[in-house]
Design a protein around this nucleic acid. Sequence first.
DNA 1: GTACGCCAGTTAGAACCTGTAACAGATCAT
DNA 2: ATGATCTGTTACAGGTTCTAACTGGCGTAC
Lengths: 198, 198
Amino acid sequence: MRAEVKEHAWAQIAEAGASAISLNAIAKAMGLSGPALYRYFANRDELITELVTDAYRQLADAFHAAVEAKGSDPAVIAHAMRDWALAYPQRYFLIYGTPIPGYHAPDTTTEIAGELMGMLLDALADRDPGPATAFDEHLDAHRDWAESDLRAGTLRTALGLWANLHGVISLEIANHFTNMGFDTGQFFQSELDAMLGR
Amino acid sequence: MRAEVKEHAWAQIAEAGASAISLNAIAKAMGLSGPALYRYFANRDELITELVTDAYRQLADAFHAAVEAKGSDPAVIAHAMRDWALAYPQRYFLIYGTPIPGYHAPDTTTEIAGELMGMLLDALADRDPGPATAFDEHLDAHRDWAESDLRAGTLRTALGLWANLHGVISLEIANHFTNMGFDTGQFFQSELDAMLGR
DNA sequence: GTACGCCAGTTAGAACCTGTAACAGATCAT
DNA sequence: ATGATCTGTTACAGGTTCTAACTGGCGTAC
């Protein structure tokens, strides 16, 4: 039942964004009347929270599937992230888009965020992070969020890769490149090469 | 009058986000009654559009001011961008956050976006873009959006810098780093060094 | 077999929102 | 002075979330 509600919610999100989902419209689409849904979700926020964690879970599953199929490689994870974002842009924005003021992410989402970062760290563990930087020192003193057997340089590389990936992907799916005429896939690959190639 | 309305709109945005601005509430805050505002804004979308272009304009002004004060340098622009985003996170998200479905940015915003990119290109013009890449060739064939006297490598560098800046900044102001405990300013500087230093 | 309680759904309604229509009053130009 | 215009009003239609109160059915206990 909750699953069916979320099904309709995803459909509404895909065509009008998260802020436009309406419990009323979902109920009507399911042949129910307005307040019936309040048996299953306390309020609109609870539904959205559930959607956010589901989206996170899906992204993590996409990562796992990609690593399973093609090996633990940063480029594999990067492409999995972009492919998922292109397939489900609204879900991506649910995770990484404009935060809703006053809304606090539940613990499960931060756990999954850690899981994502963990996979990226694993994929980068055997890599040479290049010369140590000033930031590495600082990171070394603030690394409680990562497994302890990793070099600070690896953490730095993962953070940088993650941020850069997010930058390229979010600009692409927010259509900030559309007026420029170049191929976004090639740009993504180019950035990936710059980050990992060297 | 329109300015006063926008003033209140910014206040509402700051505390509850863009999707929560209400013409009704603004009117009440101004001592007017609901429909009075429709004399000045045809509808809610027109107000938001104006806010978006104003935000763009402000960001561009921040860039100009920074360049004026400290010279045309990519690091100067980068810091100006981050400082502005930290000062006005909601305005930043209005520009670069989750796009509003069905909303099409007016021409003026794309013009200002081009202005921003132009300043970045200027600041990078004298820089060695490093060895030519495969993407440079593609860019060379799709560069109508940039002045013609620039090397493709410079365009590539500007795009990459822009995307990476956006990634770091947007993750920071969306609080995706809060649980990690490191200093976001140092991370920003580290990324900036990695992008420009080399 | 009857009575009880629970559960899923209903309608009614309060309090919001956007936006339109019709109207009242002031002010400004001719 | 008179008419047009401009600014604001109230009334209203239709939408939203969400609460309250009620109804019908189903399962269980006695």
